[in-house]
Design a protein around this nucleic acid. Structure first.
Lengths: 335, 335
DNA sequence: GTGAAAGCGCTAACAA
DNA sequence: TTGTTAGCGCTTTCAC
């Protein structure tokens, strides 16, 4: 288990060249003669040399690390995002330093990221004090708030058009002949929930309708299940429910079917939001609104890389179009 | 957007102490006088100083970074693992450098991790050339193969008792009165699949039974669905099927119910493996075998940290007990 | 194209 | 306890 730590100096010695020649050989775009390069690579290979990225970062001022902050991975939307983000960043030559964070320790986490000289930060944490993004901005580090925004923050944001998405849901349910349409919220103070709910109400209003009843699921399945039990415990039950995300919608469907013996979509229409992979699973076959995670990731990476290279610090707010995905958990409009 | 990069020297100057005094103040366990520490902290706070972790790592030889390699996050088992692993490591003062890897680029990824001076590596990638783990071992970096093992590798491994798990499934199905019991495999060359399958056959044999038919799903839902269609396309259909993981089992259940109009568990018993969160969702209510992800992560972190601090490089192979989880996708033994 | 020399920001002896 | 002094392994002028 020897770990002799081969350095560029060792390689230089073996190849009988200067240490800088070794450095140049491993630096893209440096001018090295064919022959020198060959000698260096040969020696490096024999010694098992690998450049120390930390030392390189120290002097170059570029760590090649992007910090990613996530609150939880229960909702499959986030694993999908992490996978795509990670792959995209890797392809561009960056690495992901991943942090899971609860509300409590966010401050320490951001501090830690900063110490590791991350070149950019992606925050997909639901609760997010606007101060944290500010802290990064103060250090000149670009931040992208993913799937959330804070109006007062200097941070960039990438979201999908939750307002329009909510509106589409309302429109679809009304056209499907629904009369008593309810809503189960996520976190009431999250931007995603606010926009989806506002768009939903607007859509109802366009048809002269209003929301029949309302519960709060706090983006958890237990919360959503409980909210469903309450909303459907009334004598005059809703005939449709818009749930603020798919993750909660699955729990709602389970309660409606298994505890309340309601038939979906005949007795009640259920619509979710996100279009996570499970929505397409036949046992749920959930009508929902797609958040285009691919394009959202692309936008995130674009903004980040651009702000890392340029000093352009214009605040960007990308809003990608939402797409209604019709499946079989909500009664279809007859038209 | 100034980014003046405050260094310890700047703080020293402001606090009128030496640069080393600043360093000591930010080094746990160093001896600094109350008064000195106070002055330093005050100056640091005013200047907005944060120690550069990269510089620190360079000299201390400890990066505080653990590399984590994952192949894909479709199967919810892995997001759960990543979340727990990440939280546990953070709590112990380490950070996670996350890499998604396909078969093709594994080599480059490991090279990259090594360059970043990771202190340990967790590999949860399904296909894994034993050579990679070897490479890390050569550099004296502890490696834990998570949920997989390679007999010929010097790497540690943490798994659950897949052999016993497979055996329990066979036993349960037989005791449930099943006669034509089939198996849908994952990756045939993965250790998880090999052990689950071997244990399963052994369990059948103990009752004098054999496997009725067999398909391969390659741990994908499409593959599993196709395998199910084939196995159940025969005139004499199976009356039970053990699917090598939950992720595939959901797809199998969907095919059985929606395409073949079979009733679960009356017509056919389905048993999965992993006990991912979705298994408890009522639409599936999948009987399965739990892999204890919590204890598995604990073991992983323990092994890693111990080998990082000690030079004890004894190869460890932790095998945690599996637990049968009875739900309602398989006919229950009457006993 | 190449080598010498000067650091990047920090920790860790070593004296004082 | 404190300051001084070497570097950690690398990139990057700068002459040659």
């Amino acid at each position: 288990m020897a770990k002799p730590t081969v350095t560029s100096a060792d390689v230089a010695r073996a190849a009988k060249v200067s240490q800088s020649a070794v450095s140049r050989t491993f630096t893209r775009g440096a001018s090295v003669a064919q022959e020198t390069r060959r000698k260096v690579l040969k020696a490096a290979d024999e010694l098992g040399y690998r450049p120390n990225a930390l030392a390189r970062s120290l002097i170059s001022g570029k760590s090649g690390i992007i910090g990613v902050l996530v609150a939880y991975l229960d909702n499959q939307f986030y694993p999908v995002v992490i996978e795509k983000l990670s792959r995209s960043l890797q392809a561009k030559g960056y690495r992901v330093l991943l942090f899971m964070t609860d509300q409590g320790d966010q401050d320490a986490v951001v501090k830690d990221m900063l110490q590791y000289q991350v070149e950019g930060v992606v925050m997909a944490s639901a609760h997010l004090s606007s101060q944290l993004a500010q802290q990064c901005a103060d250090n000149g580090i670009p931040v992208v708030l993913f799937n959330r925004y804070i109006a007062t923050s200097p941070a960039n944001s990438v979201t999908s058009d939750n307002l329009d998405g909510g509106r589409m849901v309302a429109d679809y349910l009304i056209r499907g002949g629904r009369k008593r349409i309810s809503f189960i919220a996520g976190f009431e103070d999250s931007s995603t929930n606010r926009d989806r709910e506002a768009g939903f109400y607007k859509g109802l209003a366009e048809h002269g309708a209003v929301c029949y009843s309302r519960g709060v699921g706090a983006y958890t399945q237990e919360g959503a299940a409980q909210a469903a039990r309450e909303l459907f415990g009334e004598t005059k039950k809703p005939d449709a429910v818009f749930v603020a995300n798919d993750h909660m919608a699955f729990a709602v469907m389970d309660v409606l079917r298994n505890e309340l013996n309601l038939h979906i979509p005949d007795d009640v229409s259920v619509v979710g939001y996100d279009d996570v992979p499970q929505s397409a699973w036949k046992a749920y076959d959930l009508t929902t609104v797609e958040q285009p995670s691919g394009p959202m990731i692309d936008a995130t990476v674009d903004i980040l890389l651009e702000q890392i290279s340029n000093q352009d610090v214009t605040r960007k707010a990308a809003v990608l179009p939402a797409r209604f995905v019709e499946r079989n958990s909500a009664r279809k409009p007859v038209d």
